[in-house]
Design a protein around this nucleic acid. Structure first.
Lengths: 338, 338
DNA sequence: TTGTAGGCGTTATCAC
DNA sequence: GTGATAACGCCTACAA
């Protein structure tokens, strides 16, 4: 870091800009905040001065004077961050950050220690934060919902059970049904599914979508096995499915990672994808394309989710009323497996 | 959010605590900041009052009055965040957040748009941030180094070429050499490597470590192919390696993901791991354990890296002098592949 | 449309 | 050891 020896000017303040432009601080403040009622000539002069001294508003002073925090917090439950390398997390953050970049809000992150939740609570309720976003996979991490009573909060994903909180999610059920219909329209009739955990909304909704589509088509929906969204569990479930002895020519898997697991056992049994069994996954993550043949799957727009979450939070903060649940559209990515 | 109707108390201030405790604001401030010269009886009374009104210091006011920012920024280059699902990123963030949780600093994140870098620059130099952390894979993203002249900065990973900046990294070369030595001590003599891109420090250092160990043992180091750290590139490199016709009984791969790629072709050729060819990877990420047989690899302590980065940054901010480069130790995780 | 002035919640410098 | 009292940099009635 540069030595603080001699020639260091102080960071420019409103005052300095005002002096240089020959106006009052109030006026400079107005142009900085885009208040319309400023004479354009003066505004121009002020802007010039701002550039000249390289002025940047002091966020702390701003927040203090305006009596409103200018940052929003992203809460990451500790349990989640323990999952080494979570793709979901990184993408949501990215979306959130992208959206906030165009606002005056700053994004800060806390990982919520389950050991001392009061700390996080105090941080959020201390008046230092305008709103909060909660990203987690597990329904148990909904322990923050009650804070919605005091500060705007938006969650990622539908909560388990009823809840009055705001959240954004994809329509897992509809997307799963769509994926299944693809299999059906391809002429498959013995369609199995590898479902996710039934204590997580995505697990529940995705199998429910599969059932929906199967019922529509009058097909048998008894071919189901469960996994926990991991690759290994997908392989095991596939083994059980095959072990039943019943014919299978189509497979809907609740996420791509389990689909990759299913691939391995399908292929070790000599079953060809998609000729013998067509498979479609869910999420469109890195597993979908790293597998061979590449997986046809439901695209889960995580970055968009992040953006939307941020957008809704800002709306909430600024008092606009918005819908409690917002679903963002998915799409089917047709590749080689179905 | 709760309606702002009637019964809403204002957020408690120092003033209110002072009144309740029957002391001056100055005294309350002292106990809040752990200034030693406070009578213990009075301090106790103040603490009680703090609890009573549920007081939380206003960070903006604090920052303003103390003339020092209380947040540090994590910069994520846009190019990096585009990599869908980056495990490295999530873990570094986690480490950073964990460390900062015990300090008075708040962590905020910006994704640096390459379109308008001035924006990020202004944010960092505007005096609103005490220091910054840069996490990226690519050497090109070192465009922030020059800011080190104005504000404390710490980077993740050794920069390409010389640089006067602070960074924390693992000793890639030593670790790679260690991994290779394991192969050698297991009696392998025809050891190939799948190296990473040679324009990235980890790519460079890891192959260099392999060469080191091979030279030590007097082994031939001509069996090398390059990948770009992706699974697919690992598979391709393996194909080329095998295509050379030379015998191979050991393989060091510059990261686990490429190792997973190599697995697929090794196995489709009927080569057994580790019997026919023993393989060791690098990173110890999720690929290492999702592959069969599980991969022996170098454990890359990413979370620790994050913690260390934050620690160094805080030291820098507080004026302590610290070493410019700090390397954190790796370890070899012996599983089934070597 | 512009300027004046008070205040936001803390810290920090003084006296006491 | 404790308490006034100025800042800190900015916003915002209110007045002009």
């Amino acid at each position: 870091m540069k030595q603080d020896t001699s020639g260091n000017r102080p960071t420019p303040t409103l005052e300095m800009v005002a002096a240089l432009a020959g106006v009052s601080r109030a006026t400079v403040s107005r142009v900085v905040n885009d208040v319309p009622s400023v004479d354009e000539d003066i505004a121009a002069k002020v802007r010039q001065a701002i550039l000249a001294v390289n002025y940047t508003p002091n966020r702390a002073a701003r927040s203090l004077a305006s009596r409103r925090p200018n940052s929003v917090t992203l809460i990451v439950p500790e349990s989640m961050s323990k999952v080494f390398a979570d793709p979901f997390f990184a993408s949501v953050v990215q979306g959130v950050a992208l959206y906030l970049a165009d606002t005056d809000y700053t994004l800060n992150m806390v990982i919520a220690s389950e050991a001392k939740p009061e700390k996080t609570r105090a941080f959020l309720l201390g008046g230092n934060v305008a709103g909060a976003l909660v990203v987690s996979h597990h329904a148990g991490d909904r322990s923050w919902t009650h804070l919605s009573d005091y500060i705007p909060m938006v969650f990622a994903g539908r909560p388990l059970g009823e809840s009055a909180s705001y959240y954004v999610d994809v329509d897992n059920e509809a997307a799963a049904a769509g994926a299944t219909r693809l299999l059906i329209s391809n002429g498959r009739t013995n369609i199995a599914t590898i479902a996710g955990p039934q204590d997580m909304p995505p697990g529940i909704d995705r199998i429910s979508g599969w059932r929906l589509a199967m019922a529509e088509a009058g097909l048998d929906d008894s071919l189901v096995e469960y996994g926990d969204f991991t690759l290994a569990s997908g392989a095991k479930a596939m083994r059980r499915l095959l072990g039943s002895g019943k014919p299978i020519d189509g497979l809907f898997v609740a996420n791509d990672q389990m689909a990759a697991g299913a691939y391995t056992v399908l292929q070790e049994r000599g079953l060809r994808i998609p000729q013998d069994v067509a498979v479609v996954g869910f999420d469109d993550d890195s597993f979908a394309t790293s597998v061979n043949p590449q997986l046809t799957t439901v695209h889960h727009p995580i970055i968009e989710m992040g953006k939307k979450m941020a957008e809704i939070l800002v709306d909430l903060i600024e008092g606009k009323d918005t819908a409690r649940v917002t679903q963002i559209p998915t799409s089917l990515v047709i590749r080689e497996s179905a």
